[in-house]
């Protein structure tokens, strides 16, 4: 039901995006009506049951990878206050 990995937007017609899953030939269609903003070509979407739920935030992805690198170096990771 839920694709664990984001799919890349290849084409957009109205509120329907055609996306590529992984690097393969498989494409799927997803409605973009639940997204706060229309996605762009090349964006990566999280798709669940035929609907896009989020656009992948590239900056945050880079940021996470950077902090992952730092975590293996340092001690207490930061969190959100409980």
């Amino acid at each position: 039901m839920c694709l664990a990995v984001p799919a890349e937007v290849l084409d957009i017609q109205g509120e329907m995006a055609t996306c590529r899953v992984d690097r393969g030939q498989t494409t799927i269609k997803a409605s973009t009506m639940l997204l706060p903003e229309a996605p762009k070509l090349g964006d990566f979407l999280i798709i669940h049951a035929g609907f896009a739920l989020r656009v992948l935030d590239r900056e945050q992805a880079e940021e996470s990878l950077k902090s992952l690198g730092e975590i293996v170096e340092c001690s207490v990771p930061s969190g959100v206050e409980g």
Binding site: L35, R54, D57, S64, V80
Partner: peptide, 20 residues
């Protein structure tokens, strides 16, 4: 201590998807 964290910031924002 105990906390709530978000390690999936590339997809999840603290306030979620308001539209959905």
């Amino acid at each position: 201590g105990a906390q709530v964290g978000n390690d999936y910031t590339r997809i999840v924002s603290d306030s979620g998807n308001r539209k959905a």
